[in-house]
């Protein structure tokens, strides 16, 4: 999984620009997963309420879930994180405990797609970042404490 040793791997790099691309492919609609995840709301609530509203009742920490995030992020407007797991995870939630809106996003991995995700998130200030995955009907979590030098208006 080390990106330095993946030269044998096929790789697709898409650089999508948000303007004027509609004519390229034609809009076909955002396709939702086969097992529909309820439409989430991104509201200013507590972490616990955000988890509950996303359908997470009980969650337990798992060492089989890895959340990579910096110990210190200089710019809270774009903090690079990645999540990977050996669990058969089909759904991933990313949350920032102390953001005004803790829930950052929900991701779905259909069969054939590895439970891996890298993205950039906003952090308003120092906080715990959580990755929560659903695997075999149970929820597992991993957390990292991230210090933020300049906050990024975390939504």
């Amino acid at each position: 999984m080390n990106p330095r040793h993946n030269s044998d791997r096929r790789r697709l790099l898409t650089a999508l620009r948000g303007l004027g691309l509609l004519a390229l492919g034609g809009w076909t609609g955002v396709i939702r997963a086969a097992s529909p995840v309820p439409l989430l709301t991104f509201k200013p609530v507590t972490l616990e309420a955000a988890l509950r509203e996303a359908g997470v009742d009980a969650v337990q920490p798992s060492e089989q879930l890895r959340l990579n995030a910096p110990d210190v992020a200089e710019d809270g407007s774009a903090v690079q994180i990645s999540v990977s797991t050996s669990l058969p995870a089909r759904r991933l939630l990313v949350l920032v405990e102390k953001n005004r809106i803790p829930l950052v996003a929900s991701f779905e991995f259909p069969p054939g797609t590895r439970p891996f995700l890298a993205t950039r998130i906003k952090m308003a200030g120092d906080s715990r970042v959580l990755a929560v995955v659903e695997a075999d009907g149970r929820w597992f979590s991993a957390a990292r404490e991230v210090r933020v030098t300049v906050g990024g208006c975390g939504g």
Binding site: I31, F42, A105, G112, T113, I121
Partner: peptide, 11 residues
């Protein structure tokens, strides 16, 4: 291949 719901906390 992949589906996501994003909130304003994505950069």
């Amino acid at each position: 291949l992949f589906a996501a719901q994003l909130g304003p906390g994505v950069a």
